[in-house]
């Protein structure tokens, strides 16, 4: 067994496993299980990245996805108390059609991958250069903080904006009565109805009324 075959087998495992977990993400009914499957996807992709000698990105994916983003998802679920499986239809009517189109698109990707990719010139960052820098992490640091310092700083601005935006959006606001110009007629009537007698319990679902 050559190292090449071994590497291919390892790739096959990680690739297959990540695809399976990915399918689970979109198939499972329980959002918590979906989130955990997403963790599986990320872990196996980390293996792929290591295979590609992109060790820093492997670690970064695990830390950011598994450690931050998916935890955020779980926190949200906990906050909204929607962990329990909703006894409603989970899939759209358009699902079969979407799967067909998705399959066609996938085939098209494969066809295009196999035939038309024109590889550009080799870049300056050969494995020897990377090794000379002292490894993947140092090499990435060189590129990121020397050549792409400004985009990196702009990315931090993006993150700050996202933080502010998230806080503003999710902040618990006292429900102030909105002016009638801001809402639709049915919404406005629903609100009047609500004010008049019934408290939230059996008020008409305004969304239903606007719809269809």
């Amino acid at each position: 067994m050559t190292s090449e075959t071994l590497l291919t087998l390892i790739f096959a495992y990680f690739a297959l496993a990540s695809v399976v977990f990915a399918v689970l993400v979109i198939m499972l009914r329980n959002p918590v299980q979906c989130a955990l499957s997403l963790v599986g996807v990320v872990f196996h992709l980390a293996g792929i990245f290591i295979l590609l000698r992109a060790e820093f990105l492997a670690a970064a994916h695990i830390i950011i996805y598994a450690g931050a983003i998916i935890v955020l998802f779980l926190f949200t679920m906990m906050l909204l108390n929607i962990g329990a499986v909703e006894r409603v239809r989970q899939f759209h009517v358009q699902a079969p059609l979407a799967i067909v189109i998705g399959a066609i698109l996938f085939l098209e990707f494969i066809v295009l991958t196999g035939a038309t990719i024109t590889i550009g010139a080799q870049g300056p960052h050969s494995p020897a250069w990377v090794a000379g820098q002292g490894g993947n992490v140092q090499a990435l640091g060189q590129v990121l903080f020397r050549d792409y310092l400004l985009p990196f700083e702009v990315a931090s601005v993006l993150l700050t904006a996202a933080v502010v935006g998230a806080i503003v959006l999710a902040r618990q606001r006292p429900r102030r009565p909105r002016s009638s110009s801001e809402m639709g007629v049915s919404e406005w009537m629903a609100e009047r109805y609500e004010k008049a007698n019934v408290r939230s319990s059996n008020r008409p679902n305004s969304a239903e009324e606007i719809g269809d």
Binding site: Q94, L97, A98, I101, G102, I104, L105, E108
Partner: peptide
């Protein structure tokens, strides 16, 4: 879906 269809 229309976007995906268009892309395809």
């Amino acid at each position: 879906f229309s976007v995906v269809l268009g892309t395809a």
